[in-house]
Design a binder for these strands. Sequence first.
DNA 1: CCATGTGAAGCCTTTCACAGCT
DNA 2: AGCTGTGAAAGGCTTCACATGG
Lengths: 223, 223
Amino acid sequence: MESRLIPEKNDLTDRIVGRLVAYRRLLMRLMSQDVSLVSSKAIGDWLGIKSSQVRKDLSYLGEFGKRGVGYSVPRLLSDLSGILSPFSPWQIGLVGLGHLGEALLGHSAFFGHNYEIVAAFDVNLSKVGHYFSDRPCYDLKDMPSKIAELGIGILMVTTPASVAQKVVDLGLTSGKIIGVLNFSTAKLSVPDGVEVVDVDITVELEKLLFRLKLQEQRRLFDQ
Amino acid sequence: MESRLIPEKNDLTDRIVGRLVAYRRLLMRLMSQDVSLVSSKAIGDWLGIKSSQVRKDLSYLGEFGKRGVGYSVPRLLSDLSGILSPFSPWQIGLVGLGHLGEALLGHSAFFGHNYEIVAAFDVNLSKVGHYFSDRPCYDLKDMPSKIAELGIGILMVTTPASVAQKVVDLGLTSGKIIGVLNFSTAKLSVPDGVEVVDVDITVELEKLLFRLKLQEQRRLFDQ
DNA sequence: CCATGTGAAGCCTTTCACAGCT
DNA sequence: AGCTGTGAAAGGCTTCACATGG
């Protein structure tokens, strides 16, 4: 859990970080099963990637393995956590308390880690003032002041696409927002220094459907 | 809407398909605003990518643009739809009616397109027999027979990771499942010929958090 | 003998730059 | 003159293969 500097270069790409998160998740499971040693091959097999990929990824962080032996599970876990954990916990605000918003509030990953959803915002006054999965819902109008009050630095946007830019602009007026996790299909524009990550469920589904269409076509015509 | 063959080669990668879906979404909006002509530059600016990327992507589908002019919105939209739409509609079954499952049932994208969630499955008997966003919830036990009965070919898995593999295995016994959209953090193993796409919300959040950590570090030490 | 760490190779994706059509 | 379509260059990512050390 000790938080340390990110080693050497800033050359840890999004892609690599995504895998590091998966490694950490696996290591936590192995840890709880009292496995103390693991090889890059074993990690790769669990996650469906090549062992060389695992070794390359881990080598960016330093030399954590023992040749001929493998990696110490507790050691590697604590090193990964050090890299991935923030310097101090993040407070997250969720904007748009529809079905998806409620689902994310109920998601166990967003309770009490190094990041936490601390409040929700909505325009629907029947929701304002009530609690959802133990988090208060405030009026969207009060968002800028509540962001400052609660130390929120990140917004999760689960509004319809048509209002996503508007709520983000409102949040940005607080001057405290540095990151946005965007679940809407809108392409957000934000000032330099604010990071946006898009999570587009329907695009993922359509990629799957297209792969299935290709399969079907192959079955019908090729071979 | 006319469904046609995927042109030339199967070299449309997941990545390209993801962008094609975004282009189609933008074109639908332009269409509704009676815009009839669009350039690769305009598309790129809307979506935050380079015009050369847009042209390269579209060139895989054929020569749809007019040099010196741009692309016809209705023409390009219908061509993209032809590529992306399935030969016949897909029926989707949702497994695991927790918060996320309910959110996805409520998601407008999963009503009445070329793909549609037609039923949900859960072990919780207080949900079985009831309707959620107009879709029936059946007992998980009955999943294999309902899959056959309803023509389901795709599963959306929104169960806890600990049971995800089990419910997929159960679904596969029907012999009808060819694709899985996996929202759990479990790594699923499936037979050849079954496609899996993982959607991992917490990994996306952690990628954002890591980018923010790097920024913070840069602010503190560099420059 | 086993598994890591890593330069180099191979593969894939994006961007450039310009010929070609309107 | 404007914008597409596209080889070629540049840039990234993954895999190989082997030297290195336990």
